[in-house]
Structure formats: structure tokens, C-alpha cells
Amino acid sequence: MCFDDQVLSTYIDGELAEPWKTQVEEHLLHCATCKSRYDQLQDLETDIKAARLREDEFSVQRERVWQYLEKHCVSAVKEKVIEKRFTFKAPVVFAAAAAVVIIFAAGIFFTARVKSPVIPEIPVISSENKGTASNTLIPVVATDASPTERSMRDLTIEEILQLLDERGFEVDLRLKSVEPLKVNSPVIRSNLMNSVPEISEDAVLKGVDAIPVMTLESADTVDAELEADASDAADSDADAEEVTEEVTEEVTEEVTEEESVSEEEVPAVEDEPEAPVSEDSEAL
């Protein structure tokens, strides 16, 4: 029994399974016809294999394609890796932005809640009890009509000073009086009594510097006018009754005016001596 080309071809391809493979091998040893056909097919196989594209025929293409792939794919992967490290998807960016906004807004909100009471606590103070004699040394009223806060009327000078000190204001408290004051306030007594000098009548005329002034110096937001009614010292001099900054300024102005007037009048008389004479003669 001879084998057809299909079996021989499969045998040549090495794909013929047992037991046919052994049968074919044994048959080819005895059958000249099949052996001849087998040789033909084997030669064909050899020729086909010989036509195989050799490595040296495509070495150029092999290198060229790899260079292209390395440029467009491999390097692109490296760039993608870098991009992935530093880029985020849109939802992430929006979430991050929203988080920043919320944190920022919350920060402003809570900061404002904490700090907002500071401003009404330092209201503008005006003197309302001016001229009235009382034992209260410094009656002050908050002009800032904040309903929630205590008015400055309710505060003692000690509390005001503590308040201002807590807020970081530099408080310079000075007393202006011709006569030593009898101060009942424990604050004044404890803090300022030793520093209050005895002031004579001449001190008023000599200038502001010689007169102790009781002032509150603070930031621009606080315009504090403190007036001390020195009722106990009223006997000595009317000018020294009120120990205020305003009074001090008024006195200073009056002094300067008097000085200027006196200086001007003297030369005026010297320059025009005849005028008053004529006037006097006419009157006479």
C-alpha cells in the first residue's frame, strides 16, 4: 500500500503521528515509487526553505523600525510616566480647589468670629458728665452704640486700662492739676500717686510740658477723651479745676495769644507814638 502526497507532505512537515510515521518510514525503505515522490517533495521543501528571507536581508529594517518605535512609543511611555506623576484628573483638581476654598472660607469665618468683638470693646469715649462733681473719677460713655456690649459707663478706669492693655495699646496716663489731687480711685492711687507732682499756679502759664496731663494714647480707632473732675481742688484755682487735655490746649493757646499780643502792642506804640497822642488830645 502506497501513501499519497498528503501523507508524505505531512510526514516531511514532521507532523505525522504514530503509528503512521513508522509505517511511512518502513514503506519508503522498500517502495521506490514512493521514495522517488518523497525525494521530489523533500527537494521542493528544501527549495522553499532556501527562499527564506535571511537575517542579513532585513537587518537594516530591523534597526530602522526599532529606532522609530523607540522614538514614538518607548520615549512616549517615559513621558507618560512623568505626566502621570504630575498631572491629575479634572475631578481631583476641582475637589482640591473646592477644599482650599472651603478651608479658606472657614478660616475667615472663625477668625472673624473670634476677632469681631474686639472692635465694639474699644468704643469711642466721650465725656458726658463734664462739669458734674462726683466721686467717680473718670466717667466715660461708649458712643459706639453696641447693644450687646456693656457701655463704657459700666467700666471702671481700671477695667478700661486692663482692657486696653490686653488689646496691646500703649497707655500713657498723666494727670494735669495745679494742686495735688485727692484721688479715691485705687488705680490712680496705686499706679500714679507717686508720680503726680505738685503743681503751682505758675506752671499753668509756663506751658503744657510742665502740666501733667491725664490722657489715653492709643491707636486711631480709639478716640478717648478722659476728663477728670478735680472737684476737691476747686478752692485753689478755677483754671485748675478741670484736668483735661482740652483745657491744657486752651490754656496753651491763651498763653501764646497773650504773649503775641503783648509783643505786638509794644512796637506798635513805639512806631506810631503820635496817633494815641492825637486821639488823647481830641478826647481831651
Partner: peptide, 28 residues
């Protein structure tokens, strides 16, 4: 794999330029 698919492309097309392009496209 490049030698394998280069041979496949070449023995089907028998055109080196086309085979090069095909292999490149396949790897891309």
C-alpha cells in the same frame, strides 16, 4: 519576534518597504 513577522510580511507581500511599514504598524 521581529524576524518572524518580517518574514511573514515579506513572503506574503514580497516588498521590503511594505514589509517594513507593516512590521512597524504591527508593533505600534
Amino acid at each position: 519576534v521581529f524576524p518572524v513577522i518580517m518574514r511573514v510580511a515579506y513572503h506574503v507581500t514580497y516588498n521590503m518597504d511594505a514589509s517594513e511599514d507593516i512590521c512597524q504598524e504591527a508593533f505600534i
